[in-house]
Simulated scan of single mutants.
Amino acid sequence: MERVKQKLIDLFLDASNYQSQFKRKLYEDAFTKYYKKHKALFEEIIAMCENAEDADQVIEELSAVIPEYAHEQINQIQKKRKRSSRILDYNLDMITFVFPAIVYDENEYCVKLADAILEKWNRPPIEGNIQWTSYEKLQGGFRRRLCYITTAVCESQNKADDCYELKLLRSYRDSYLMSSEEGNAVVEEYYDVAPTIVNHINKRENASEIYNEIYDRYICPCIRLLEQGKKEECREVYTEMVKGLKRQYLYS
Results as ranks from 00 to 15, higher is better:
214 I>R: 01
186 V>C: 03
88 L>E: 12
87 I>V: 13
114 A>C: 09
234 C>D: 09
33 K>V: 15
69 Y>N: 10
31 F>T: 05
87 I>A: 01
228 Q>M: 09
126 I>P: 01
197 I>V: 15
150 T>F: 11
138 L>E: 07
194 A>P: 00
192 D>T: 04
47 A>D: 10
82 K>N: 05
65 V>P: 01
206 N>A: 12
11 L>V: 12
202 N>Y: 02
60 E>F: 05
181 E>Y: 03
58 V>Y: 08
103 V>A: 01
118 L>I: 12
14 D>V: 02
230 K>C: 03
163 C>V: 13
22 F>I: 01
34 Y>S: 05
54 D>H: 06
26 L>F: 07
27 Y>D: 04
88 L>A: 14
10 D>H: 10
103 V>L: 00
217 R>W: 06
213 E>G: 04
82 K>I: 12
169 L>Y: 03
252 S>F: 09
171 S>Y: 14
193 V>C: 00
189 E>Y: 04
98 V>R: 14
84 S>T: 07
204 R>Q: 15
172 Y>L: 04
238 Y>Q: 02
218 Y>L: 00
8 L>W: 01
40 A>C: 08
220 C>N: 06
42 F>N: 04
82 K>F: 06
46 I>L: 02
244 G>N: 01
27 Y>C: 04
93 D>S: 14
130 I>S: 09
7 K>C: 09
81 R>K: 13
88 L>N: 08
145 R>W: 05
192 D>I: 02
200 H>Q: 12
111 V>H: 10
68 E>I: 15
115 D>G: 09
157 Q>S: 12
168 L>Q: 10
252 S>M: 09
61 E>Q: 11
129 N>S: 15
107 N>R: 12
54 D>Y: 05
160 A>I: 01
151 T>Q: 14
248 Q>V: 14
81 R>A: 13
144 R>V: 11
226 L>W: 01
114 A>L: 08
234 C>N: 00
29 D>S: 13
29 D>E: 11
136 E>K: 14
241 M>R: 00
117 I>A: 03
216 D>P: 07
21 Q>I: 03
113 L>F: 03
42 F>Q: 06
111 V>K: 12
121 W>I: 06
33 K>G: 05
201 I>F: 05
71 H>W: 01
146 L>Y: 01
20 S>K: 02
229 G>K: 13
121 W>H: 10
181 E>W: 04
128 G>T: 09
108 E>L: 13
240 E>L: 05
134 S>T: 15
32 T>L: 10
23 K>R: 11
186 V>H: 04
174 D>Y: 08
56 D>G: 10
65 V>D: 09
